[in-house]
Simulated scan of single mutants.
Amino acid sequence: MAALAHPISTLHLPQTALPQQEPDPRVSNTADEAEYLERLHTHVYEMIKSLRLSQIKALDSDFAPFAKQLDGLCNLAEGWDGYDAPKPSPQAIKVARTILERMQEELVKPYWISASADGGVAFSFMAPGDRRAQIEVLNNGEKFAHLYDLNGDSHTEDWTENLEQKPFRELLEPILNYIQL
Rank of each mutant, 00 (worst) to 15 (best):
M1T: 10
M1L: 10
A2D: 12
A3N: 04
L4W: 08
I8M: 07
L11Y: 09
L11M: 13
L13H: 02
Q15W: 15
A17M: 10
A17Y: 01
P19T: 12
P19A: 08
Q20E: 05
Q20L: 11
P23R: 06
D24R: 02
D24Q: 02
R26P: 06
S28R: 06
D32S: 02
E33N: 13
A34H: 12
Y36R: 06
L37S: 11
H43T: 15
V44N: 01
V44R: 02
E46G: 00
M47P: 01
L51F: 09
L51N: 11
S54E: 14
Q55M: 07
Q55I: 09
K57F: 04
A58P: 06
F63I: 09
P65L: 12
P65C: 11
K68G: 14
L70D: 01
L73C: 12
L73N: 13
L76H: 07
E78T: 03
E78F: 01
E78Y: 07
W80V: 14
D81A: 07
G82H: 10
Y83Q: 12
A85N: 00
S89A: 15
Q91K: 15
I93F: 05
I93P: 00
I93G: 00
V95P: 05
V95M: 05
I99C: 03
I99F: 02
E101S: 13
R102A: 09
Q104R: 15
W112C: 03
S114A: 08
S114R: 00
S116V: 14
A117G: 09
D118E: 12
G119V: 14
V121H: 09
V121W: 04
S124V: 04
S124F: 02
R132C: 11
R132T: 06
A133K: 02
Q134S: 10
Q134G: 00
I135T: 01
A145Q: 07
L147A: 10
L147C: 09
L150S: 12
S154P: 14
H155K: 14
D158S: 15
W159M: 08
F168H: 08
R169L: 00
L171G: 13
L172G: 01
L172C: 04
E173N: 03
P174Q: 08
Q180V: 08
L181D: 08
L181H: 15
